[in-house]
Amino acid sequence: MSQRKQIQIGTVVGQSEVAANTFIISIREPQLVRQVKPGHFVNVSLPSRTNANLLKRPFSIYGTDKEAIQILYKVKGDVTTVMTTLQKGDEVELLGPLGNTFTLPKKKKVLLVGGGIGVAPLIYLYDRLKAHNEVKILHGVRTRQEAMVWANLPVQTHVDEEVGHYVCAGFEKVIRQHEAQHVVTCGPIPMMKEIVEASARAGVSCEVSLEARMACGFGVCLGCVIETKSGYKKVCSDGPVFDGALLW
């Protein structure tokens, strides 16, 4: 019989604030690191949580570092607020890796477009694509305070309030400028929708990574469904990565 999956206890090895209300936390869990691929997510809960917050929270994988996974997150609610207080040695519960994975093309010009915190899974994807593809990353943020410093990464930051429009505006032109052959996006729904539609017009494949509130993360509660062209699909187990053409 194959090894059973179970909730793993990971140990925090470090955490830092990288932009306004935006943190990277590293959690040591060697088994998870061995299994994880770009696109996967993990369901996280904090053992120190009160009984009031029972459901785990899904986070995409930002990267791996030796035996630790890295999660890039933005403070949004009670759980992420508590998460910022975690220190080296603290334990968290991890269930994963969950969900499906990004397509990994070869010898292509690939454009990755992240909106806000949605950039997280794209950085991990970049890491696995860069050896065999020509990859560029666009990161759209609303304000300068949300911009991150990207060392050694080909990231072009687009600050909406400075440029005067969203990163996805006139995106067909952006695809042509970059001569992109494959687009991957993660961010707010309206942004992804525009990018998917622009990619379709440009005749370029486009994958999106979605997020949703979910209770289980492995396809049972049916709570995380999204409407697609072929009916409701589960973000957790049919996704989180979808062919954009299936959605819009």
């Binding site: 009984n51 917050n53 029972l54 509130r213 979910m214 209770a215 509660c221 709570g223 995380c224 409407e227």
Partner: peptide
């Protein structure tokens, strides 16, 4: 139609 779930104190 979604949304289909919401967390509540000590439940959902």
């Amino acid at each position: 139609a979604p949304p289909r779930i919401a967390e509540t104190p000590s439940g959902m």
